[in-house]
Nucleic acid binder design. Structure first.
Lengths: 337, 337
DNA sequence: ATCACAATTGCAACCGGTTGCAAAAATGAC
DNA sequence: GTCATTTTTGCAACCGGTTGCAATTGTGAT
């Protein structure tokens, strides 16, 4: 078995408390005692059991990382960033896959059984009830990629999806498209609704522009492709704002199949700026969500919450920006106006 | 604070042991006692603290899930499968991101601090020392997507990469390519070496065929694209076996840029059959690694190891199969022979 | 060397559970 | 109803640590 405190204490000929203190910084130990203990610990290959100490300290440094997004490649980037940011802060991600899960009760129970110090919900499609359920269980929560509100009930970090919808609308406007379409992700998701709202609001100021709406059933290539196929059966718009890059790429595929060109016949603007969007055979114009910033900020917020659990919920909003690539027609030159 | 054993015991008017036993199945408790305790626990919203119990039972049901592959979309599928399979077996994944990590010592220490019950290493590019380091620390280990050997030192589940190399070679042979290329992943990875070996071995039987070799620096679109660009500067082969689908897609992009057609001018066969390979604007012929089976088998192996830690290391090999799509020229018809 | 005071150490209780063992209660045979 | 046997329950010690408190040791000034 792995050596324990007691083993180290015996070998160093000191009390167990001394060993414990030698491994806690800021504790009251003399330098020579610490050396002595460290020597004995090194000999034995001892390292303290976090779980045992969590019993008295109440801290496990375990953070539940909860998501239902295991099919969109963008989330691999999210997981990469999260695991690293948590590790850099001495925290450990306990991963919870919520695919097919509709009731938060199970996850709450499970995370409480493991006495996680906090929970990060990383999803733009999970109903807000999930984050609230964790909060109600007394766990510090940060909802990354969650819905922005002016009076957040839990900490939220992400983008303003309404603003993102406006941004997309404005870039279509600037390019002079007259008939535009919104091809959203799953209709029920708040992120979809918000983007829709911003998109429509912006065009409300330009009533001469025709706006059509549709929704894909999931954030997936196939769903985007199918939805675009359906649109192409009818009278498609000149340009579409798609709910996500994967959806956009699916749409591009359907457009290509039909023998139409992009951006010649149809323009597409996506959202996320996933790595693939920059691949030169895709070259998707898209709205960039600053993932790294969102993740780092979420983790930072989590660490401050661990220090001060009573902290009042806060919404942190990051700005999006358009990444100009090749799937929208170019801006009209200034001189032409 | 969350209610504890003691709280439940007090409320039910029984001893702490009684409560403990009521929550352990197979324990010696009468039915009425169990009901009584369950009632009290439900009233209080109690659920037992796994970590505290792990102190005496020595079991945390925590499994370290260790990987360095956070950029290849195929690994999102892998994580999805792993988290679900582990959850289905009552185990919890503690995710460890090994990107940029070259020394196993840190991860070993960390996982021991959390007394994980076992470690799953999921990577085809990690040096074997990592899995061994966990084993040497006394932890049950399964290396998924690891290197097959006839005398494995740790449990390994995956495909036979040598055989995969042969399979690729045979399918190029069957299609009558005369000048073929191996465009591997990182040269140092054992998976690359094995695939190379199988590929070359097979062509050794057909000395009239010219075989060229090259390696991309990473499993990424960009690396594949760059490598293919370099190849196209010279005298490219008629068909390439690429180390991975992402690499293949990068290569396809470079080929397209050059104005060459696939499979007309150059054929490509990948490996993995990631979701994207099936997208109809990519339509990549590839060798399918049965990910779900590999993952399920790894988890199953892990659960049996938890029961019987002394189990002698075993290699579980799954067969690959060719997924015929559109990036290799068709097989010559039988009649033509 | 003496003394006041600060720094260090050990004792023992505790964190939230589990479990061997003995006492208590229930069961069944007569 | 009695007694031997089995089942159920509680006591108390333990898992691997932490921590308040008191005892011990060390420091510096005189």
């Amino acid at each position: 078995m792995a050596p324990t405190l007691k083993d180290v204490a015996k070998r160093a000929g000191v009390s167990r408390s001394a060993v414990s203190r030698a491994f806690t910084d800021g504790a009251s130990v003399s330098a020579k005692m610490r050396k002595l203990v460290e020597k004995a610990a090194a000999d034995l290959g001892y390292s303290p059991n976090v779980l045992a100490s969590s019993l008295t300290t109440g801290r496990t440094k375990l953070i539940g990382l909860v998501s239902n997004n295991f099919h969109n490649p963008i989330f691999l980037e999210v997981f990469d960033q999260f695991t690293r940011a948590l590790q850099d802060n001495g925290l450990r991600p306990l991963l919870v896959n919520l695919t097919d899960e509709t009731d938060p009760a199970n996850s709450v129970r499970m995370l409480r059984q493991y006495s996680v110090d906090g929970v990060v919900v990383a999803s733009s499609t999970l109903p807000p009830g999930f984050a609230l359920a964790f909060r109600d269980a007394g766990l510090p929560v940060v909802h990354a990629f969650g819905r922005m509100t002016s009076a957040p009930q839990v900490h939220v970090v992400g983008i303003d999806n309404i603003e993102a919808g406006r941004l997309a609308a404005r870039s279509l406007l600037a390019r002079g498209y007259q008939r535009v379409g919104f091809m959203g992700g799953p209709e029920a998701a708040s992120s979809t609704q918000d983007r829709l709202q911003g998109f429509v609001q912006e065009f409300a100021l330009h009533p001469q522009i025709r706006v059509s709406l549709s929704f894909a059933t999931a954030y997936s290539f196939e769903a985007g492709r199918r939805e675009m196929q359906v649109l192409l059966e009818g009278a498609p718009a000149e340009a579409y704002f798609c709910g996500d890059d994967v959806l956009s790429i699916g749409a591009l595929s359907a457009i290509g199949d039909r023998g139409l060109s992009v951006p010649g016949d149809i323009g597409i603007i996506g959202l996320n700026d996933m790595a693939m969007a920059g691949w030169n055979n895709i070259n998707l114009t898209t709205i960039c969500q600053p993932i790294r910033e969102i993740v780092n900020s979420s983790v930072e917020l989590m660490t401050t919450m661990l220090r001060d659990p009573g902290r009042v919920p806060e919404a942190r909003i990051f700005a999006c920006e358009i990444i100009e690539r090749g799937t929208l027609r170019p801006l009209p030159s200034r001189g032409a106006v």
